[in-house]
C-alpha cells in the first residue's frame, strides 16, 4: 500500500511537472526552449521556418542531379492517378506518368525516378523533411496549403462536372432544368455550385460520392455532380455512365515542391508548357482519363 502510494506520487509529480512545463511555455512564448539533449540538436537546422524568405533553395535541382534520381511522392490507392496495380505490382496512373515526364526532363531518362508512397497524413511532412522532391497526388491548390508548400502550375484541371447514364438527354449544365434531379454530396461546395448555376434543379444530397453513385445507378436521380477526377473513375468502372459537358468550377490540382525550391518549380512549369504545346500532355490525359482534356 505504502509502496504503491509512493509510486503514484512520483508519477503524479511527473505529470504535474509536465503540465507546468507546458503552461510555462504558454506564459512566455518568446523564451527559447530549455536546451535538453543539446548534442542531438544539430540536425534540426534543416527544419525551415515559416517565413517564405528562405535562403535560395538549399538542396534544389542541383541536389537532385547530384543524387542521380528524382524522388516523387504519389498515392498508391487513387485509381487512374496513382495506383498500385495488384496484378502487375506496378504503380501507375496520370500522376505517375507526370513524374516520369519530369524525370525525363531532368535526366533525359524516365527511369531515373523513385516513387515513394504517401498518404494524406504523410505527404506534406515527407516533402518538408526532404524525403521526397515533389508531391504528385491529386492535391488541390488551396491558399491554406500554399503556406506549407510551393505549387507548380495546374497539371490537372479538376473541377465540377456531371455524370449521367449513356443516352441521357443531359449534355451539359445548360440542360439541368426544372424537375431534373441532381445528386451531390451533402454540404459540399459542389452542391452550392450547382444550386447557383442551375437554380431550378432538384438537388438530392448524400454524404459522399460513392453513396450518390449508388443512388444514380438505382435511378434516384438524373445526374451526379462532383469533381471530374472522381467521376472519370466511376465512368471507367461502369461503362454505362459518362461524364458530360466539361467542368464548370475550378479546383485545380498542382504539383507541390518544398517551399523555396524555385528551380524545380520552374523546371516543372516549363515542362508543363512544352507538353501542352507538343501534344504529349493530351496523349497522357487521354490514356488515363479516356478522353481529350476540355479546352
Amino acid at each position: 500500500m505504502v509502496k504503491s502510494f509512493k509510486r503514484m506520487s512520483v508519477l503524479s509529480l511527473v505529470a504535474v511537472f509536465m503540465v507546468v512545463l507546458a503552461l510555462a511555455g504558454c506564459g512566455n512564448s518568446q523564451t527559447p526552449a530549455p536546451a535538453a539533449g543539446g548534442d542531438k540538436s544539430a540536425p534540426k537546422a534543416e527544419a525551415p521556418k515559416t517565413d517564405a524568405a528562405q535562403p535560395a533553395a538549399a538542396g534544389g535541382l542541383d541536389e537532385i542531379k547530384k543524387r542521380g534520381k528524382l524522388v516523387v511522392g504519389v498515392k498508391y490507392d487513387t485509381f487512374l492517378f496513382g495506383f498500385k496495380n495488384p496484378s502487375s505490382g506496378q504503380v501507375e496512373g496520370f500522376d505517375v506518368d507526370m513524374a516520369k515526364a519530369i524525370a525525363k526532363k531532368i535526366f533525359g531518362d524516365e527511369s531515373k525516378l523513385e516513387l515513394k508512397e504517401v498518404t494524406s497524413n504523410t505527404r506534406i511532412p515527407m516533402l518538408q523533411k526532404g524525403d521526397i522532391d515533389a508531391i504528385i497526388a491529386t492535391m488541390t491548390i488551396t491558399d491554406e496549403r500554399k503556406q506549407q508548400v510551393d505549387f507548380t502550375d495546374v497539371y490537372f484541371k479538376a473541377g465540377q462536372a456531371l455524370l449521367v447514364k449513356k443516352g441521357s438527354p443531359i449534355k451539359s449544365i445548360a440542360d439541368i432544368k426544372k424537375g431534373v434531379k441532381v445528386l451531390g454530396a451533402k454540404g459540399s461546395t459542389s452542391v452550392k455550385n450547382i444550386a447557383q448555376k442551375a437554380p431550378d434543379a432538384t438537388i438530392l444530397e448524400f454524404n459522399n460520392y460513392q453513396d450518390a453513385f449508388a443512388a444514380l445507378k438505382a435511378g434516384q436521380g438524373d445526374a451526379l455532380t462532383t469533381d471530374n477526377a472522381i467521376l472519370y473513375g466511376m465512368a471507367k468502372q461502369d461503362p454505362n455512365y459518362q461524364v458530360v459537358g466539361g467542368i464548370f468550377t475550378d479546383e485545380p490540382y498542382g504539383i507541390a515542391v518544398k517551399k523555396g525550391n524555385t528551380d524545380l518549380q520552374k523546371t516543372i512549369n516549363d515542362l508543363l508548357k512544352e507538353m501542352k504545346q507538343d501534344g504529349s500532355y493530351d496523349k497522357m490525359y487521354e490514356k488515363w482519363i479516356g478522353e481529350k482534356p476540355s479546352k
Binding site: A22, A24, G25, C26, N28, S29, Q30, T31, A33, P34, A35, A36, G37, K40, S41, K44
Partner: peptide, 12 residues
C-alpha cells in the same frame, strides 16, 4: 528542441 511558442500560437 521544444518550441513552446507553438502551444500559444495554435492553442485554438
Amino acid at each position: 528542441m521544444i518550441d513552446f511558442s507553438i502551444l500559444t500560437k495554435y492553442s485554438d
